[in-house]
Each structure stands twice: as C-alpha cells, then as structure tokens.
Simulated scan of single mutants.
Amino acid sequence: MLAAADDVVLLAHVNPDADALGSALALGLALHRRGARVHVSFGAPEQPAESLRDLDVADLVVPAAEVPAAPELLVVLDTGSVDRLGSLASRVDGAGTTLVIDHHVSNGGFGTAYYVEPTAEATAVIVLGLLDALGAPVDLPIARCLYAGLVTDTRNFRAASPKTHDMAARLLVAGVDAEAVTRPLLDTHPFSWLAMLSAVLSTATLEPDEARGLGFVWACATTEHIHGGRQEEVESIIDVLRTTAEAEVAMVLKQVGPLRWTASLRSKGRLDVAAAAMAMGGGGHRSASGFTVEATTTDGSDVVADVRRALAAAPLL
C-alpha cells in the first residue's frame, strides 16, 4: 500500500509526542521522495511542540484544516483509538484506505489495514522496518525523526531492548547528533516551567496502600497552574512525579475544561496501567498510558476515586 500510494495523509494523535510526529515525518519524508503527495498533521494543537519543529525539514506538516477530506491512503501512527485523532477522526471514514501503524497494546482497531506490534518499544521501531522494506534510504533527516521517537518512548533507552539499541546505533552512524536531538526533548525547559512545576507538585498526594498495595502518587494540574504553559512542559511533569520511591504508579491529572480532565499514568513495571486507563476510557502501554474524561466535580476528586478503583483491579505484571 505504501509503495503504490500517490496521495498520502499521515496523522499523529492529538498533542503529538516525538514518537508520533517523528514516525509520521520519517515515513512521510520517504514517501515524498518517492513522488507521493504527502500531508502530515494532527488534530490539536495548531502547531507541533516547539521542541519538534525542526524535524520537519520538508515542510510536510499542515494545519488540521488543510488535511484533505478523502485521501487515497490515510496512515494513522502511534494512535490507539480513533478518538485520539480529535478533529481529524472523520478522515478515517473519508479515506480510500486507512492503515494503522502502532505499538499500543490497547489498540482496538479502527482502520482497514493494520500493522500493530505491541512488543515494539516505539512506533519509530516499526517505521524503520517499513522503510527498509520499501528500500528507502535512512539518511540524516529521517534518522533524526526516528531517533527522537526512540529516545523519548524508551525513556532515554532505559526501556530499550538490545535490538532497539542496535537501531539507535544505526541512526547514529547515519549522522544523528544524540545530544543535539535529546537536549530539547528531555533536558530543556523555560524558566517559567519551574514555577508551574512547583505549583503542581505542591498538590502531590502519596497513597501507599493504593495500586494493590504498591503505592500511588498523584498530582493535579488545574487550568490556573498550566495557563500559558507549553504542552510539552505540562506533559513533562509526570516524569518528575514518577520518581517517587514509595509509589509504583504515578498520575498527573490535567484540567482541560471546566469539568474535563486528561490524565497521564505511569508504572514502574509491576502493575498494568494500560488496563486501568482502558477502564477509564483510554489506553496505552502497560507502563505508560492515559485517558480523558468528563468529571462531575470541579476539583477532579471523582476522577481520582475512579482511578483508585481501576488500579485496584489492574493486573500485576
């Protein structure tokens, strides 16, 4: 399908991270070079995160409003369910063929063709295999996109298999400057982030008996806390909270509307938080997942109570 396509739209999930957007751009760039008409996009926000913008060397990213309504081939990457496409979910029905490329164990299937590999540490791993099957050269621009996906979804290669380390080495040989790619993704924040982080962490609550007795720590980021903050700064809070020694599971609950909340869940490998997220209407990986819900309280306390129950029923790993 990829080799024959002349008109391709590649979509990442809303608020795309480096794996989602990097995978879409790597595959899109290869197809663009083969002569295909290529658009890369996502449902929200209007622009990619600042730390990801220099990956788009061929100006393939377009606003959601400019995505064709009925592409010949729609490729959806790193997206576990159609609702994660946001305003672009309707493109699934309009496309001639929809190919889903993903590594989320919770992917329930919503396209006409699938390449879902739950054991892959990142969607970038799958895309690199597809590029090889296409005979597409993996040069520096493509390698940078893939490396960005690998470094973020493996938590700087702490959760990478030997095979994935080999892939990273191949990308470094292609010319990737690991420090230059990694620093803006993982190690750079504006000064204002410190105040936001302090405010959100001041709400942190440790519940050592929750999450099947393994410990649960959570914090609440209200609209007041995160007003004006970049999306990537808000998303990085979970990486600080998850370092809590006494908790197996960490959650950051983020207010995105008066009663609407989105959550990031992380585990250290002993509890399946994907199962908990699915019980909340979301999904993801066993150690990293999330969901979005409408609450009945303005402080999100009912959501936290529901998460406690979901964690109590989640399988041990």
Score class of each variant (00 low, 15 high):
L171Q: 04
A124Q: 06
I142E: 01
T203N: 06
D17A: 03
G283N: 03
R37V: 13
D93E: 15
A113E: 15
L253P: 02
T123P: 01
E121I: 02
A24T: 11
I142T: 15
V181A: 10
A263W: 09
V304Y: 00
A160I: 05
L316T: 12
H103I: 07
D93K: 11
L73W: 07
T205E: 15
R158Q: 14
F291G: 06
S23V: 07
L77I: 13
F157E: 08
G109F: 08
A276T: 05
E46A: 15
D299H: 08
A276L: 08
A5C: 10
V8W: 12
D272F: 04
V256M: 06
D56V: 06
I142P: 01
L128V: 02
G94S: 08
S236M: 08
R170S: 13
L185T: 12
C145Q: 11
R158Y: 12
A313N: 12
D17G: 14
E248C: 07
P48Y: 10
E46K: 11
L52M: 10
D306E: 12
V304W: 09
H165F: 15
T298Y: 07
V92W: 06
G135M: 10
H165D: 01
A275W: 04
A143G: 03
A64L: 01
L52R: 10
V75K: 05
V9T: 15
I126A: 12
L271R: 01
C145F: 09
L77A: 09
V151H: 05
F110H: 03
L77R: 03
R183H: 14
H13Q: 10
A65P: 00
P141M: 11
P71T: 08
R91Q: 09
I226A: 12
T292E: 15
N15R: 13
T152N: 06
T262S: 14
L253T: 05
R144K: 14
